[in-house]
Design a protein around this nucleic acid. Structure first.
Lengths: 196, 196
DNA sequence: TCGCAACTGCCACCGAGTGCCACTTGCTAC
DNA sequence: GTAGCAAGTGGCACTCGGTGGCAGTTGCGA
């Protein structure tokens, strides 16, 4: 890595650190871009070149994460049925989240406190949902029916994931996310029993 | 209704009409609040008193719609199981949407063209999802398990609804939304068959 | 018709985000 | 090593959405 590239990476990391410290101290909306700039010793202009907008400071590496997920889906494609793919994804991401409870919980408290962040979170969810739908469509046929099926299933999946995570957050992330997730997937595969 | 109230209603309707005309002509982001104000003969301050923000001009009567849905859920509660409630809601809203295809399609094209509007749409979906979860929780028990079950199911429901609607939009709303909806609900109740 | 409450308009202001251009800094070819 | 170039940064002025505050207007009820 170049000196130039190293400097860039450092600046980026520094801005990110400063911003999230401030957000956690005073809240997302209460922190202004100028404050972050002052404390991170960069100009406003530069900050916006690194992170397209203020929300980008809370959800960094969005594209990289999505790309990692895409890679996972591609790798899981051939032999599996959709639900097994899903279970395996749940094990990977679920245990990752289990292990970084604290960081994720703090992040989530931030998000819940601002409608701009909530909105952004949903937009990101949608990107993931589209990847799931695309992967499932590749696994099955590619006619209109299969496409509809894939999209509806992907919608249901992101819905249960989001609901499961929200429940997990409320319990301060004490439960095992993998277990909760696998449970939810079972319900999707076999149908929701009318009584819990 | 008072003269005062009539005037208010008229102002509101007028602003709404002007705004949506402009949005459809030039796009949401390309239309400024000042343009709307100039053409609707109100001050910026007044516009924001009627509609909290710019997005509110595209999703008006948000609270009323939600309240109507709440009313529906309350009325449907006692004898039914969750899925029948859901089917009956699908018949009501689905046929309403079927009948106003044109308006809804135009609205949706607007929404798809702006990430701010997409984000707002998701936030509104979430409000509805929470009402569904609350209704289901009332129907079944009220322990933690029942609560989790209700929330996960509600999440799945909003997910399939959103996916179904997005498919419907892409086909220019030619298909029968009620039929599509009932199909999706069946999948949730009985489990998703692995092949379409 | 008088007094009050509701409503509106205006103005100054804030914060996010952009376009533009001058300036600095690291890289590279010679 | 250094000249020249590209990448990156800072600063400034500007736009636009949104808010606070207050003065002025208008409908309503006593």
């Amino acid at each position: 890595m170049n000196l130039r590239e190293r400097k860039k990476a450092e600046t980026r990391a520094n801005v990110l650190r400063v911003a999230n410290e401030l957000f956690r101290e005073k809240g997302f909306e209460q922190t202004t871009i100028e404050e972050i700039c002052a404390q991170a010793l960069v100009s406003k202009r530069t900050l916006f070149r690194y992170f397209g907008d203020k929300e980008g400071l809370v959800f960094p590496n969005r594209e990289e994460r999505l790309e990692a997920f895409r890679g996972f889906l591609r790798a899981a494609e051939l032999p599996r049925n959709p639900f097994d793919t899903l279970r395996s994804a749940t094990r990977v991401w679920g245990s990752e989240y289990n292990e970084s409870r604290d960081r994720i919980l703090a992040q989530q408290r931030l998000v819940e406190g601002s409608s701009a962040l909530l909105a952004r979170e949903r937009v990101i969810d949608r990107e993931w949902e589209q990847e799931i739908a695309a992967a499932f469509a590749r696994m099955t046929g590619s006619d209109a029916d299969a496409d509809l099926w894939a999209r509806v299933l992907a919608g249901a999946i992101m819905g249960v994931i989001r609901a499961t995570m929200s429940y997990w957050f409320e319990s301060e992330c004490r439960a095992d996310l993998v277990e909760l997730g696998l449970d939810a997937i079972d319900k999707l595969e076999r149908g929701f029993p009318v009584a819990p």
